[in-house]
Design a binder for these strands. Structure first.
Lengths: 245, 245
DNA sequence: TAACGCCAATCTGTGCAGGCATAAAAATAA
DNA sequence: TTATTTTTATGCCTGCACAGATTGGCGTTA
């Protein structure tokens, strides 16, 4: 089941652009890409359309396909996030996402306490109980999956679609954190208690408690992993000038 | 300079799908679309690629182009946001975005106080001063543009790309709010003071003050406009089952 | 008879090759 | 400098072959 050809081209070009192999400002020619990648014009064109929507390139007549600067890349595009996490900008990407979740998840917990359907409240209690169980056993593999599930449920239970879609990239950074060996041998009791407290608060419609305890979780994780992005430079894109080209 | 053909097709189909004219579960056939829209295969295919990336459709062999349910739509896609704001789901869209900004902007202000470059701090002071000036004069047109600019600068000054890209949709809802006549005849003194306080706090690197005052702004706007989405239903997409079709 | 499994026909997206039209940069002329 | 022509790469169109999934028929079996 080989993934479709144009997707392969999107993957090929996208990862190279984000990875810096193809530098910003480069001009790609559709005809060149045809020979180099040995595919037909239609797949090139469809791939370029997708990359253009992600903000990686823009194609104009008579000049070609221009590779755009990082500030034009759509930071919410799932593929862009994936490519950045696999590049030397992974520090900056982790920081952005972590800052985002550290403000979104407490609000999601607060909303979930008010709006979550009964089934999700129950499931949260189950998951947090299992997290404590496997966490104390030191079963990090199972714990990781439960952790991802926990945060995904809270985000979904907020009833805010935007929050819910953040579950996927957040799951990715949780996985990345364990893969990079940034997790303690077994989760801290403190963290287990906070997860439990969030689940309890949501199931009893205690919105303030849900927010507070989720906020505690966020503060801890922020402290734990902020070392990764040592001095990854921040990008300031002045909104005054739309700066097209 | 008419925008390119395939973009027109994206616009045509996208707005109709989000608007509900083309209901979820519909099957579109590329050949049909060719005659109906009177364009060639290539533009149809490129348009479908873009719509597929936005999560509006998925195309499979032997069956056609299936229109997906709203929970698959990418809520961070700028076009999806625009189409939703122009549809009968505008209440739900406003709510999502407002909830998001109400947690993101305070955090952005806090980060801006720490990381903002000098030029942006200065500009914030200027803009907030002008907001007070034109606000007290009752010049709502100029005030609106300054307000949009103010929040865009704070988001950009956070140095977080994800926050920065939210400036565009947030600007859209600020515009929408005035167009719908949801703004008072002249801005409240309270609101003017808070904006000023945010600018002051950021320029003096007072992160706690920046967050607190921005949070006040968010609370007020949330109260002012939450009436729009009366009882727009919340969508709960269970993350457990990936549910394909 | 009814249920099951296999196979072929069919339908539709995917990919290929080549053509012309057009817009915009670059070169040239005024 | 300004106006005009030339150049050239994308935009758009069309005909064709292929792949893969659905459907229905056919024969076998319980």
């Amino acid at each position: 089941m080989p993934t479709s050809l144009h997707n392969q081209v999107v993957e090929h070009l996208g990862s190279r652009i984000v990875g810096g192999v193809i530098p910003q400002g480069s001009i790609l020619l559709a005809a060149d890409l045809e020979d180099r990648l040995e595919v037909s014009r239609s797949v090139i064109r469809e791939a370029i359309r997708v990359l253009a929507q992600a903000g990686l390139v823009t194609s104009t007549k008579r000049v070609g396909i221009r590779v755009l600067a990082p500030e034009h890349w759509n930071p919410f595009d799932t593929q862009v996030i994936r490519w950045r996490l696999a590049s030397d900008q992974q520090g900056a990407q982790l920081r952005s996402l972590t800052e985002l979740r550290s403000c979104v998840e407490p609000m999601a917990a607060e909303l979930a306490a008010v709006h979550a359907p009964e089934a999700m409240r129950k499931e949260l209690l189950m998951v947090s109980a299992q997290m404590s169980h496997y966490g104390r056993q030191g079963d990090l593999v199972r714990f990781l999956e439960l952790d991802i599930r926990f945060h995904a449920i809270v985000l979904a239970a907020s009833g805010n679609e935007m929050f819910a879609t953040l579950a996927t990239p957040i799951g990715a950074i949780l996985r990345g954190r364990t893969e990079l060996g940034l997790m303690p041998d077994r989760p801290h009791e403190e963290a287990l208690a906070w997860h439990q407290a969030v689940a309890d608060a949501i199931s009893t419609a205690d919105s303030a408690g849900a927010r507070k305890n989720m906020d505690s979780i966020m503060r801890r994780t922020q402290n734990e992993i902020s070392g990764i992005w040592q001095e990854a430079p921040r990008l300031f894109h002045d909104p005054t000038r739309p700066q097209r080209k």
